[in-house]
């Protein structure tokens, strides 16, 4: 199983095993990461915003137009910002790390 690393807003680093096919948001919620993901992955809230490690961004996949549009309503964007309900876990992502912005 691929490993995904979350860096919490307080700096704590948590590496978790993720199931292929799950969304990264689901993985984060399953491990009680500090993330609202209010709309449950229906691309309507932008509260699953993460900042992907630069080295991994290219592998994180293409952003669809709807994700880009919703990112317009997120704050503190970076060049590697993603909505993690739109990223699917695969062996390709084994080792990927991302930072969780502060909630609220």
């Amino acid at each position: 199983m691929p490993t995904i690393t979350f860096i919490k807003p307080d700096g704590e680093t948590v590496a978790v095993e993720a199931t292929n096919g799950a969304t990264v948001m689901e993985v984060a919620k399953d491990h009680d990461m500090p993330m609202l993901a209010a709309c449950g992955g229906s691309l309507a809230c932008a509260t699953c915003h993460v900042i992907v490690d630069e080295d991994w961004f290219a592998k994180s996949g293409e952003l669809c137009e709807a994700e880009e549009d919703l990112l317009d309503t997120a704050h503190g964007l970076t060049s590697t910002s993603r909505l993690c309900c739109q990223m699917k876990v695969s062996d390709e992502l084994n080792g990927m790390a991302m930072t969780l912005p502060p909630m609220e």
Partner: peptide, 11 residues
């Protein structure tokens, strides 16, 4: 729900 709806304020 996820809390009271209001304007999405820049932090």
């Amino acid at each position: 729900g996820a809390g009271a709806f209001g304007p999405n304020k820049p932090p």
